[in-house]
């Protein structure tokens, strides 16, 4: 197993100081993801999907439970270890792209390599190659606000891919796109999964999107259950 999640519980404290109440958001979540799979997590707004992803990514610590990724227990990491692990193993795709407004498409894709300390020469080749691969060559010098939503999402996918991570987490990757662009992006994800053997964990509220995954989980009020998908292998 690439990712194993065991009995994750999480609750948020809400309300004013002194009168807080504890709201459980994730309840005994257990699931696993195999190497090379596309797994989707679908659920209604507020069901706790994003919270689960944040815990997987290490942005948030679960109240209890254990996460094992690549035989490493990541749920006990401190901030530094968590950041390092993300840099080496995860790519992220967000609903609103989260590109750096001050950087060009090319520079946005280059950023994770900079963080890794790769030198300028190697970076340039690698980014150029990938930009070509995802069809962004013509817009590589554009700033994010000069790009369409679909192009922006491609840039953010390229940024997630550039470090060749084994796992990419995507939170509503098609949430801000029209249905045609959505198809393009989903196809791109499919291709990358096929050609590069990258494991995807996709979070969505859209059953249609979710059903294109290899396996699909449904989140309902903090409880996760697996469901069958039509194109299951």
């Amino acid at each position: 197993m690439l990712i194993t999640v065991q009995d994750i519980n999480h609750s948020f404290l809400i309300g004013r100081k002194g009168k807080e109440s504890n709201v459980p958001v994730l309840k005994n979540i257990s699931f696993s993801v195999k190497q090379g799979e596309i797994v989707s997590i679908v659920g209604r707004s507020g069901s706790g999907k994003s919270t689960l992803l944040h815990i997987l990514a290490g942005f948030l610590k679960p109240d209890s439970g254990e996460i094992v990724v690549k035989d490493t227990v990541t749920s006990v990491f401190n901030e530094q270890q968590s950041a390092q692990f993300r840099l080496e193993n995860y790519g992220f795709i967000f609903q609103n792209f989260q590109l750096m407004p001050g950087l060009t498409a090319f520079e946005n894709v280059e950023l994770p390599l900079k963080l890794k300390g790769m030198n300028r020469h190697q970076r340039k080749d690698k980014v150029q190659q990938l930009m070509k691969h995802v069809g962004l060559q013509s817009v590589q010098d554009h700033y994010p606000n000069e790009l369409s939503g679909g192009q922006q999402q491609r840039v953010s996918i390229a940024r997630a891919l550039i470090t060749d991570p084994p796992i990419i987490f995507a939170d509503e990757p098609t949430g801000s796109l029209d249905s045609e662009t959505e198809q393009e992006v989903l196809e791109l994800i499919q291709t990358l999964n096929d050609t590069r053997d990258i494991t995807f964990v996709i979070i969505t509220h859209d059953d249609e999107v979710a059903q294109r995954a290899d396996r699909m989980y449904r989140m309902h009020d903090g409880i996760l259950t697996e469901e069958g998908v039509p194109n299951a292998v």
Binding site: Q80, Q84, Y90
Partner: peptide, 16 residues
């Protein structure tokens, strides 16, 4: 703030 958050999400160390 948002950019810093993205950097951290991608894996930038707090020290950096």
């Amino acid at each position: 703030t948002r950019e810093i958050g993205v950097m951290k999400a991608i894996g930038a160390q707090p020290k950096l």
